[in-house]
């Protein structure tokens, strides 16, 4: 029974691998998978031409990349800039320019994510056997195909999670904003600050040694969050660890002109507006 089962698995795998050209690429089913797909496409894909990399958290994920064709985004939902830096370090060819989001710098590297990216056996296997990458998982392909089919039959797109704004769901927005206010009201500990900034400075120095230009930028958030102690202290630390004359910063915007879905993530309109400003500043 055992040899027959193993043989069946091998046959299935060979057939599956041979059919790879038929599979749609770049699909993912959830946030975690989306992050991995993005990282793997950067690592294994033909991204050596991507000379300008943007790294950040879900805040940066809101940037409209359609306006930034020269840039590759390594912003990950729920993760930190350190995860983006992990991915860049894994790549043999360093980019020319790296833009680093400053907002969530105190969020630590995600152990599970970095171990998935750095595990040598997994890395090599996926490099040489592409069907083992997240985007080609059988369930990803089946689920994407089935949902497309159903949506076509229904004649309408599916109802995605509601996009919250202060206007359409004031009650829920208030709860989400309160959550963010509570998080940002607390002063971060000195040990965490110094650990995070020392680590970031080390990684930035390494990039610069490889000839990479590093530029920092801050994503706008709700003005009520922006003026709280945590973002203010983080900003001060940035200017202490990365002095203005020595490091480049994108001029921060006035947050009052932007609206968010939960206090920190820009809504579509504000995201486009900030993307334009961002592009304008970078190309200056």
């Amino acid at each position: 029974m055992i040899p027959r089962a193993v043989f069946t698995a091998v046959i299935l795998f060979v057939i599956y691998a041979l059919c790879k050209p038929l599979y749609p690429a770049g699909q993912s089913l959830n946030q975690w998978q989306g992050n991995l797909v993005k990282a793997q496409r950067f690592l294994y894909g033909n991204q050596d031409q991507a000379e300008n990399i943007i790294i950040g958290s879900s805040l940066t994920e809101r940037l409209n990349m359609g306006f930034l064709p020269e840039f590759y985004s390594l912003s990950f939902n729920g993760l930190s800039v350190f995860d983006g830096l992990t991915v860049i370090q894994r790549k043999e060819h360093p980019p020319a320019q790296v833009l680093i989001e400053t907002n969530y710098i105190l969020r630590q590297e995600h152990e599970q994510f970095s171990s998935t990216i750095n595990a040598e056996i997994n890395y090599q296997i996926r490099k040489f056997i592409p069907v083992l990458r997240e985007e080609y998982q059988p369930v990803v392909i089946i689920s994407s195909g089935l949902s497309d089919l159903i949506e076509k039959k229904r004649g309408k797109g599916s109802e995605k999670a509601e996009i919250i704004s202060e206007q359409n769901r004031p009650d829920l927005f208030a709860k989400l904003l309160a959550e963010q206010v509570a998080k940002n009201k607390k002063r971060p500990g000195c040990e965490l600050l110094s650990r995070s900034f020392t680590k970031l400075r080390g990684q930035v120095n390494n990039l610069e040694k490889q000839g990479v230009t590093v530029i920092f930028y801050e994503m706008p958030v709700d003005a009520r969050v922006n003026r709280l102690p945590k973002p203010r202290i983080v900003r001060d630390y940035f200017h202490y660890y990365f002095p203005d004359g020595k490091y480049q910063f994108v001029q921060p915007v006035d947050c009052n002109g932007f609206s968010t879905t939960d206090g920190v993530h820009l809504d579509d309109k504000s995201a486009i507006s900030f993307t334009n400003y961002f592009l304008e500043q970078i190309t200056k």
């Binding site: 027959r4 043989f7 069946t8 698995a9 299935l12 069907v131 998982q137 059988p138 369930v139």
Partner: peptide, 11 residues
């Protein structure tokens, strides 16, 4: 069981 091994490897 072959199918389960296949899914463990790929998914």
């Amino acid at each position: 069981y072959g199918l389960m091994i296949f899914f463990i490897v790929t998914n």
